[in-house]
Design a protein around this nucleic acid. Structure first.
Length: 425
DNA sequence: TCTGGGGTCCTTTTGCCC
DNA sequence: TCTGGGGCAAAAGGACCC
């Protein structure tokens, strides 16, 4: 694929490649997880490769362009992807490997500018206005980054160069794979208005339906619609947001570090589970996992939320706010379990349960654990000891007794409520 | 065709206090 | 004493993104 490729619809109007007033880069790795797998196994090069859960209920997380040619795309159920492309090589995801490559890629970005805002493992916004004198105009910096990543990581990426974040993101999507596209400030609206409404950030399946019902198919249609009409249809926030985007207005700057708002874990079972004891065990596992990640990041949170999903995909959430923030697995578990028990759905088969902790307090603003309660301090120390053991000996080295027994051991007792389980007693 | 797991943000409802 | 309503925080649900 050639460098400097432009959108299939042709170059945007305005002086082509004019990147003055385009400080924002959006860098997006091409078929990232699949590319990492192909790099690891060169025999896969040129083949349709699908990365996704091999289990019965997985979805596609990434697919090579050879697989996409069959209609396979991410978030598609694996069963369907296999039917569309029976010859595809299926690979289970290895997030450790993707995270390692991601760190290396982000380091390349940070060598260009400190203003790097990662969006996920495989994409980031960069504000390069401070690097222009050192490295040249934005488009040149984009090519520099593409060359370095290909050279150092042997994978390709696409770069959008634009006056704003959101247009830069659209631009990188329009030049995929292995391309770079500049949308000059002067050609902004000419680029934007012919695009379908679904191209806008925040327009998913539902919103698209609503807009099409109103006869609005392109971004230009949206721009020509009075703000108040959009707000009536979509709500004040979404209406104002989309109206602004349709006119190319996007005030958001590139922010290197957004603090986490919540941390959680969830699991879809291979087969639906109704047995409340088994659900309790699952809640315990998810609570421990969530707590470990909270402690790892120096976080604690005040609100514990659970999520359950029935066989028919109906999803319920329940939440409880605690008097003080916690990062203790046993406290999270006790709360999660109480929320589940209060639903009164013992025996009803679930396909998913999840645990999440919200209202995180920043590590530095966290008061010393005065209010956490005496009963908790024992747990907290015990769990910190577990953290240390895991760091030395690996995950699974130490686990709560209820999780050590055989998964479907009928003698496994229901886990005791927290009051009955005091370490050191 | 049958839908993962990690999140964010917005809207609406509800309960409480004054 | 009863009722209404404003303001607020929490809870619940849903859309969306990668």
């Amino acid at each position: 694929m050639s460098r400097g490729r432009v959108a299939p619809s042709g170059p945007p109007p305005g002086a082509p490649g004019d990147d003055t007033g385009c400080p924002v880069l959006h860098v997006d790795m091409d078929a990232f997880y699949a590319s990492v797998e192909v790099r690891r196994r060169p025999d896969l090069r040129g083949l349709p490769v699908i990365v996704g859960g091999a289990g019965g209920r997985g979805v596609v997380t990434s697919a090579t362009y050879e697989a996409r040619a069959f209609g396979v795309h991410s978030a598609m159920p694996m069963t369907r992807a296999r039917r569309l492309c029976p010859d595809a090589v299926i690979v289970s995801p290895d997030f450790e490997a993707y995270a390692a490559t991601s760190r290396a890629v982000m380091e390349v970005f940070r060598s260009v500018t400190p203003l790097v805002e990662p969006i996920s493992l495989d994409e980031a916004f960069l504000d390069v206005s401070g690097a222009v004198r050192r490295l040249g105009p934005p488009a040149r910096i984009g090519e520099l980054i593409r060359a370095r990543i290909l050279d150092e990581q042997r994978i390709t990426c696409s770069v959008g160069v634009a006056p704003t974040k959101f247009v830069a993101k659209l631009a990188s999507a329009r030049c995929k794979p292995d391309g770079l596209l500049v949308v000059p400030a002067a050609g902004l609206l000419e680029f934007l208005h012919p695009l379908p409404v679904a191209a806008l950030w925040g327009v998913g399946e539902r919103t698209e339906e609503t807009l099409v019902r109103l006869g609005l198919r392109t971004v230009g249609d949206l721009a020509a619609t009075p703000l108040t009409a959009l707000q009536d249809a979509l709500g004040p926030a979404a209406g104002a947001h989309l109206h602004a985007l349709a006119w190319g207005r996007d005030e958001r700057s590139v922010v290197p570090h957004e603090p986490d708002k919540s941390i959680g874990a969830e699991e879809t079972f291979a087969k639906d589970i109704g047995d409340p004891a088994a659900i309790h065990r699952e809640l315990l596992r998810l609570s421990e996992r969530t707590a470990a990640r909270l402690r790892d990041g120096g976080h604690a949170g005040r609100t514990v939320a659970i999520k359950v999903r029935y066989a028919d995909f109906t999803t319920l959430t329940r939440a409880k706010t605690l008097p003080a923030p916690t990062d203790v697995g046993q406290v999270i578990y006790a709360t999660a379990r109480a929320l589940y028990d209060a639903l009164n759905i013992a025996g009803r088969p679930l396909r998913l349960v999840g645990v999440r902790v919200e209202q995180l307090v920043a590590p530095e603003s966290r008061p010393r654990q005065l209010e956490l309660g005496a009963a908790e301090t024992g747990w907290r120390e015990a769990e910190q000891a577990v953290d240390r053991a895991v760091r030395r000996f690996g995950t699974g080295a130490v686990r709560p007794a209820t999780l050590v027994r055989g998964e479907d051991d009928p003698r496994t007792p229901p886990s005791a409520p927290p009051g009955e389980l005091r370490p050191g007693e």
